[in-house]
């Protein structure tokens, strides 16, 4: 029971503070799931989930909630509880926003808050990239070569799914 409550509370927090969506939520998920006190996932597990999220449909936050919920509790119920936890705050907040849509549309206070959050979101994405540049993900010079190639390809807007598959195949050929 304890583990279900803990899963729900942790992913509720991720849903509540996960501004910017996608990559911007990664440091938050990592902070809650990989770091102490929970240590539910290793650094390698974490990057693999991000990779799997790239290849499967759906938001990264939902994907990691389902994955962590299942692996931590060993049952599908853990996955249900964690996924509900991450979806509830956005559901409640967006319902309120939708309801007061016209009032929110030109709300100066919302604009003020978001003017500060925009740079913070970019900072969070940068933090995700910085923390992931570690010895788990970069094992030798071949990793660095893959990194540079995919970096250039992403700048030129190549399809991310094809890039993931190509680098997986490169891994098969190189290791």
């Amino acid at each position: 029971m304890q583990i279900y409550l803990s899963l729900f509370a942790t992913f509720f927090k991720i849903g509540l503070f996960g501004f910017g969506g996608g990559y911007a939520m990664l440091p938050l998920i990592q902070h809650e799931v990989v770091a102490a006190p929970h240590k539910w996932l290793s650094m390698t597990d974490f990057i693999d989930i991000v990779a799997i999220s790239q290849m499967t449909p759906g938001p990264i936050a939902v994907n990691s909630a389902t994955y962590v919920g299942y692996t931590v509790s060993g049952s599908a119920w853990g996955a249900v509880v964690a996924t509900l936890g991450v979806c509830l705050p956005p559901l409640i907040i967006m319902l309120l926003i939708s309801k007061f849509y016209l009032k929110f549309r030109e709300n100066h206070y919302m604009e003020m808050v978001f003017s500060g959050l925009k740079p913070a979101i970019i900072g969070l994405i940068a933090a995700a990239a910085l923390t992931l540049m570690n010895s788990h993900n970069f094992i030798d010079y071949k990793s660095a070569l893959i990194f540079l190639a995919v970096f250039a390809a992403t700048v030129y807007k190549l399809d991310p799914i094809k890039l993931i598959l190509a680098s997986g195949l490169a891994g098969l050929a190189l290791y």
Partner: peptide
């Protein structure tokens, strides 16, 4: 495992690359 060894640095690149354009 070899497949994922290739993917891991690629994922980091995909997170880092759009930062400049985004800002």
């Amino acid at each position: 495992e070899a497949f994922f060894k290739g993917i891991r640095p690629a994922v980091v690149a995909m997170i880092a690359a759009p930062l400049y354009a985004l800002s």
